[in-house]
Structures are given as C-alpha cells and as structure tokens.
Nucleic acid binder design. Structure first.
Lengths: 330, 330
DNA sequence: GAGTTCCATGCAACCGGTTGCATGTCAAGT
DNA sequence: ACTTGACATGCAACCGGTTGCATGGAACTC
C-alpha cells in the first residue's frame, strides 16, 4: 500500500525558516528582493520539508497558470501527432503545459472542449477547427486564440499553404505527360480541401490539363479505396489525393484491380505523413505540421506576454516530394 | 481588434441577485440546498452577467481540479494516438480534462513533466514509462498513478500482453514451414520488447524453431531498414519485428535488395498500426492500445473517487492478424 | 550627529470560490 | 399558544499563494 504525502504549505516553510510567508513567496518568485542569506535559509527549510509551490494557488492570485490548450479534430490522423509534438516542445521551452483536446471532427464537441478549457488555460490553439467563423470569433473574445489552417481576419493564424506544393504536383504530372488527372477530395467543410482543390484547378487550367474531382467523403483509407472505381471511370492517368491516408487507400484499391503504380497509374498524396514510411514510397506534398505547431504556440506565448493581439497571418509554403509513385506516361 | 472581457465573479452575481456569495456558490454546486425560486433567480442573474465559475478558484478550495495527466514517450509513434484518443474520450465522459506530455523517450524529460503536472492534475497515467521502478514508486507516493505497459507491484497497471499474439505469430510461421526466423528487436529498455522477445523464444523452442535476434536500436522505420543486411545474413526465411514501423522499414529494405515479400520472405509486425493502411497489408499482432487508454483512465478515475489504491493488474490479450506478408515456404 | 536614502522584511488585503456553523422563519406537533 | 424541527440563507474562515505599502535599521551625506 502506498500512502500519499499531503502538501507542505508556504506557512510551514515560513515558520521553519523564521520569516514571514511573503518572504518565502519572494524567495521563489523574486529572490533578488531578499538578502542572499535569507534566500538560502528559506530554500534550505523548503528543501527539508519537501515544499513545492502550489500551482493552483499561484494561478489564482496571479491569474497566470502556465497552461495552453491545443484542440485538434482527430489525433489519429497522422497529420496531427507531429504538430502536437512540436507544440508540446515549444510550450515546454517556456515551462508551459499543454491541455490536449480531440473533437472527433465534431463542432459541438469542439465548442464544449473550448468551454471546458477556458478558465484553465491562458490561451488556445485551434488546429483545423471545424467551428464556424462566428463561434471562433466569439471564443477569441474570451481568451487569446491562435488558429492553424483557418483563415479568419483579425485572429492570429498559421496557414500551411499546400497550394504551392499542389501546384508543383500538377506541374510534375504535366511534365511526365499526363493530360487528364483526378483530384480525390477530402471533407467538404475542410479549409485545406478547398485550398487544394482550388490550387489544382488553377494549375491544371494553366497547363491545359483536364481535372475531375472524385469525392472521398472522409479523409481516410477506406474512402480512398472506395473511390477507385470512380477514379478509373474518368479515364485519368494520374491522381492527386486530398491526403496521404486517402492516397494509401487509393493505392490499395488500384492494386486490387491489378492497376499497378506507378507503371499504369501515377499517384500523389498530400501531407507527406506516410510516404517515407511505406512501400512503395509515396510521392507527396510536404506538410509543415511541425513548424505549424511550433509557430502557433510561439505566437500564442508572445500574445500572452505582450497582452496585445496582432493580426498575424503566418504562411508556410509546401513543396512536392517526389518518390516512387509517379512516372512518365508511356 | 478584439477586446477581452474579464471575469465576472461570484460576488457580482450575488449582488445582482440580492443574495450572499455562498448562495450563488450553492446554486451551482448543490442547488438542492436552496429553494427553487432562489436558484432560478441566481441563475438568471448569472446568465445575464455571463458568469462562469472560476475553475482555478474552485480547485484551490476543493482540492479537485478535474484534470488528469497522460504521459507518453513518443506521440509520433502510431501506437499512441489511438491510446490518447481513447483516454481523452474516457476522461471527457467524467468531465475531466487531459494534460498531455511527450517525453521524447527521455527519462529526464519524463521526470520533469511528472513534476510539472503534479499539482495541477489529480492523477497521472504513464504509458510505456521509461523511468526506473524507483522513480515511478516515488511519484506514486505523491499522486495517484496508473501505468500502461509497465508491471510494478502495488501500482495499478494495464498491460497489453503481446506475448499471446506473438506466440500465435510463431505458430503461424511454423505452420507455414518456416524453421529459422529472426526477431528484429526494439529499444532494449522497453518492457514490451522484453515481453515480445521472451514470448518468441519460448514459442520457438517449443516448436523447435531457431530464432536469432537482430537489434534495431530504436523502434523506427530507418532502424528496420538498416537491419535488413543482418537479417538476411542469418539465413532466416521469416522475421517478426518489434513493431509495425520497424517492419515497414524491413519491408522497404528487403524490396531494395530485390527480396520480395511474401514470396521470398515472410514478415510479421507488432501493434497493427499500419497493417490496414499500407500496401501490401502487413500481417501483424493486434494491439489493444485503445482499450488500454480507456481502461487506464477509467481505473484512475475510480481511484480518485474511492481515494483508495487497489493493486490492479489488468491484462489485455492480443492476437495475430493475418494479412498478406506471410506465406508458406516453398 | 541629525537628516536622508535605500534596502530587507513584515503586514494585511486580495485572488474567487467552498463550507461548517449560526441564525432566522415558518409550519407542524401537542 | 408554545415548542420543536426542518429548511433556507447568511456569516466568516479557509484553500495557498502574491503583492502594494508600511516599517525599521543600516549606510551615507553634509
């Protein structure tokens, strides 16, 4: 059986060291205000008693608890773990802790989480939020907010411009001789999906390539797989998928239909989350999710410091990473 | 520019409703103690002012803040996201929030995070902790702790018994005619790695199969890929890898050496995190990470309720999921 | 040696809730 | 009509820190 030791308070330390509570407090927060001897005496007493400042009490009186929240739609989507990791690391550098929320792609759940987090975090990062602009604006009125992959005026945001990479993807396919391609689209309410579809169409029309869109409903392996018949029906010779997961599903679906990649069909993913880890290595549009997570948290911490909200719009460009699922048309 | 509204306090609501602060407090926490009319009057006033109870203040006086911590060694390892997701969901059901910590496989960082979390969480789940038994015991003395994939007497723990699945894997290979196999091992300080290696050796010796161990240092794609030469040098016809990531690396390495899977070589992964999402579909040992996350949090919440620590040892069995990377020896 | 500064420390109010106990009111019991 | 009890509400202490201001003594000035 393990017994719990309960908290040592500042008063106990003060008694032990023969000083006032305020001095103990200052020994920990502003030691320069005290004489060095007093500080060491207090520290010794604190050490001996095993004193640890109570985070909650400190938060109550200062109003700063050193926590930030991070809300993502789906942790299981491989796009997010690196983002979360980077956010965590960045927060850690400033001794902040991260509250993590997963919304299951559900705006109601997202609203609920924001509410639960508000009050225990100093600020919030919303990644790929599924909330309406109005809801986001409303939340931003209550606490500092930074968005990732949502573009709302007046709210600091970090945008991964997959457009630039997608453009390269189309150019790459054009150079390989493909004239008819498919875009396997993702969730219709996703900002990234709109961005990618728009970029593809623009690039294709510029290069005189025909694009058809096949919807994959969700960004998932199975949707990609189920989309294969529709993809082949278009007569296209190459496809760009909304993300790597979808692409991987398409890959599997094609292989089941004995269409081999890349000799019979070229395929490009987005986000580059699986490309380097699977076989055949997927040609994909790089994502900058790590930077996005880092920058978003760093921006948020800046806001907390300066107490001012600047209208930042931080754009991260992406590029095509060519691997082994694309080849020249014979 | 967005301006922040600052907190409405219980006193303001009390004034507005013409009652004492304590009544407002009770209206929110124990409405049964008040007359229904008073409650509605208070609620109306609160609503009008936009009052939201201050979580921190409440936590300070009650000692309960409704947060639990979850610490994992590597979010980017696909084993963990489903675990985190399930933990989150379970916490959510009881209106708890999750603090997430990522240790980068570093015990120092883990220790630091535990320290930072303690004091703002009511309890902690340590998944695949890299800490020593002593450190874990020490932490368990300070706050309620539940372990995942660490087996320490006296501390509640959830164990994923990959042994059972690994045994099935060896039996499967034996049935296919393989007599000489390789275990591509993972991090040496990992509990799961020990468990898997032990299970393989036991099963193999029982079935009269030769096992050689090839280390892959880290559980990663590249380590697996680099291990291929050593694997082939053993003359084995099949391999079981520490996890799916490693297996995927081995797959890539084999393919580079023109060894095709499964016709020339059979390969089995562990954790089943990629098998269903890549091509060719990887035969793998199922993981139960979702259940593990859910059960661990549920156990922790139970502990918090009853304030008692039971010595729970919850074991989740695993099974082999046969897909397309294993075949009979010709 | 008296006046002025400056520094180290203590005092006490405050952050925003919760809760044990006291008080007052009203209805039921006899 | 008087007691008794139940119930609704208020009072004030408390959770564990932080911080503006007051104080006292030492050093410094002239």
């Amino acid at each position: 059986m393990i017994k719990r030791t309960k908290g040592v308070t500042i008063s106990q330390v003060a008694d032990a060291a023969g000083v006032a509570r305020s001095s103990v407090s200052r020994a920990f927060t502003r030691p320069d205000m005290l004489s060095p001897e007093t500080v060491t005496r207090i520290m010794k007493a604190a050490e001996a008693l095993g004193y640890v400042p109570n985070h909650t009490a400190r938060a109550l009186s200062t109003g700063r608890h050193g926590n930030v929240g991070l809300i993502v739609p789906d942790i299981a989507n491989p796009f997010f773990p690196p983002l979360i990791q980077a956010a965590q690391l960045e927060a850690d550098r400033s001794d902040f802790c991260i509250f993590l929320g997963n919304t299951e792609e559900n705006p109601k759940q997202e609203d609920k989480l924001v509410g639960r987090f508000a009050g225990q975090v100093e600020g919030l990062v919303l990644a790929s939020s599924r909330l309406s602009d109005e809801r986001i604006r409303a939340h931003a009125g209550l606490l500092p907010l930074v968005l990732i992959n949502r573009d709302i005026d007046g709210i600091p945001r970090v945008l991964i411009d997959s457009g630039s990479g997608v453009r390269e993807a189309v150019e790459h396919l054009a150079k390989l001789g493909h004239r008819r391609i498919v875009y396997v689209s993702g969730p219709s309410n996703s900002w990234s999906n709109k961005q990618r579809r728009t970029a593809i169409k623009a690039a294709a029309s510029r290069l005189d390539i025909v694009v058809e869109t096949v919807p994959a409903v969700l960004a998932s392996y199975n949707s990609g797989r189920n989309a294969v018949s529709a993809i082949l029906a278009t007569g296209a010779t190459a496809a760009v998928a909304f993300d790597d997961l979808t692409a991987q599903g398409v890959l599997a679906g094609l292989s089941e239909k004995r269409v081999s990649v890349p000799s019979d069909f070229s395929l490009i993913g987005c986000d580059d989350v699986l490309g380097a880890v699977t076989y055949p290595a997927l040609t994909s549009v790089s994502n900058r999710s790590t930077e996005a997570g880092r920058v978003a948290v760093s921006l948020l911490l800046d806001m907390l410091q300066s107490r001012a909200i600047r209208d930042v719009r931080y754009v991260l460009e992406t590029h095509l990473v060519v691997r082994n699922t694309t080849t020249a048309l014979r």
